[in-house]
Simulated assay, not measured.
Amino acid sequence: MRLEEITAKALNTAGIDRYQLAIAVAQRAKELENGAQSKLNLDLKTTKSTDLALMEIAEGLVLIKGFKQKA
Rank of each mutant, 00 (worst) to 15 (best):
G15F: 03
D51R: 11
E56C: 06
V25C: 07
A36M: 05
A58K: 07
L42T: 09
K9L: 15
L40W: 02
I6K: 15
A26K: 13
M55S: 08
Q27I: 10
Q27W: 01
L3K: 14
K65C: 01
E56P: 11
I64N: 00
N34K: 10
K48G: 15
A29R: 12
A22Y: 08
L61M: 03
E5V: 12
R18W: 01
D43C: 11
L63G: 02
D51T: 14
M55D: 01
A14G: 01
L61A: 02
K30A: 14
T7E: 13
G60W: 04
E59W: 04
K39V: 11
T7N: 03
T7M: 13
K48L: 13
T47N: 15
A22E: 15
K48W: 04
E4P: 00
E5C: 03
L21E: 00
Q20E: 10
Y19L: 08
V62R: 02
L61G: 04
Q27H: 13
A29W: 10
N12F: 04
L11V: 04
T13W: 03
I57D: 03
D43G: 05
R18A: 12
L63M: 05
N34A: 11
K39I: 05
A58G: 06
A8Y: 00
A8K: 13
L42G: 03
K9I: 08
M55H: 06
S38E: 08
K45S: 15
E56Q: 07
K30T: 14
G60Q: 04
V25T: 13
Q37A: 11
E31G: 03
L54M: 15
I16F: 02
G60K: 03
A36Y: 03
E56D: 04
L11Q: 03
L21A: 01
Q20R: 10
Y19R: 12
L42F: 15
Q27D: 15
L21P: 00
A10S: 09
E4K: 12
I23A: 13
L54T: 10
A26I: 01
E33T: 09
L32A: 05
E5F: 10
Q37L: 11
L3H: 12
E31W: 06
K48Y: 12
T46N: 15
I16A: 03
E31T: 05
I23S: 11
A29Q: 07
G60P: 09
I16L: 06
E33S: 06
Q27C: 05
M55T: 02
A14Q: 07
E5Q: 14
V25W: 01
I6C: 10
R28Q: 08
Q20V: 00
R18P: 00
R28P: 13
E5R: 12
K48V: 04
K45R: 14
G35P: 13
L42A: 10
L63W: 00
D17W: 06
Y19H: 10
N41C: 01
R28L: 02
A26Y: 00
G15D: 04
R2W: 07
A22H: 09
V25E: 02
G60M: 03
K48S: 15
L21Y: 01
A8L: 09
E56T: 06
T7S: 09
E4H: 02
I64S: 01
I57W: 05
E33F: 01
A58E: 01
L3T: 12
E33R: 14
A26W: 00
K45L: 14
A36C: 02
S49R: 10
K30Y: 12
N41D: 14
R18T: 08
L3M: 11
L42R: 15
